[in-house]
């Protein structure tokens, strides 16, 4: 049995300690936001926040996560009540196929929590480990800008970076 703190709740999971967090989230906890992409920490589709920092959940055995605060995209809101960052992604229509988006949202979340008004350079720098192969980057950046507290963010138009 492994005890995990996920989205504010303590969860008991019957999993071997070497099981990657991603598998436990998806298969044991039915938190299917985080996706399996490459399994090698190269694409970012599995990104979650651990104690407020972005982490690739495909590369993290649950046995190493005792006492750590895990946040997944489900922890930011729901389809009925999306959180502000999720709403910004909807408003900017910042997804094409959508496979990378849960990871993108979580990586962006860790940036805005630490720096509520990042510059475009800071957004690009922070988001660079996460890949999107549809080419939705411009809208993703626009969504992050919209969710930030930057003054000009409210004027942001779709795709106008």
């Amino acid at each position: 049995m492994v005890e995990l703190k996920v989205n504010g709740a303590v969860r008991q999971v019957d999993a071997a300690p070497e099981t990657p967090l991603l598998y436990v989230l998806r298969e044991d906890l039915q938190l299917n936001g985080a996706k399996f992409g490459c399994g090698l920490g190269q694409c970012g589709a599995c990104t979650v926040a651990i104690d407020g920092a972005p982490a690739f959940s495909c590369l993290l055995p649950v046995g190493l996560l005792a006492g750590r605060e895990i946040t997944t995209v489900e922890g930011l809101g729901s389809p009925d009540k999306p959180g502000p960052l999720q709403q910004a992604f909807i408003d900017e229509q910042a997804a094409q196929c959508g496979y990378c988006i849960a990871g993108m949202v979580m990586r962006a979340h860790t940036l805005l929590a630490r720096n509520p008004s990042p510059t475009d350079d800071e957004i690009l720098e922070h988001m660079s480990p996460n890949l999107c192969r549809c080419g939705a980057h411009m809208r993703i950046v626009a969504a992050i800008r919209r969710a930030s507290s930057r003054k000009e963010a409210s004027r942001s138009q779709r795709g106008a970076l």
Partner: peptide
């Protein structure tokens, strides 16, 4: 390319 583990 290798991910960093500072946060995790």
């Amino acid at each position: 390319i290798m991910p960093g583990f500072a946060g995790s």
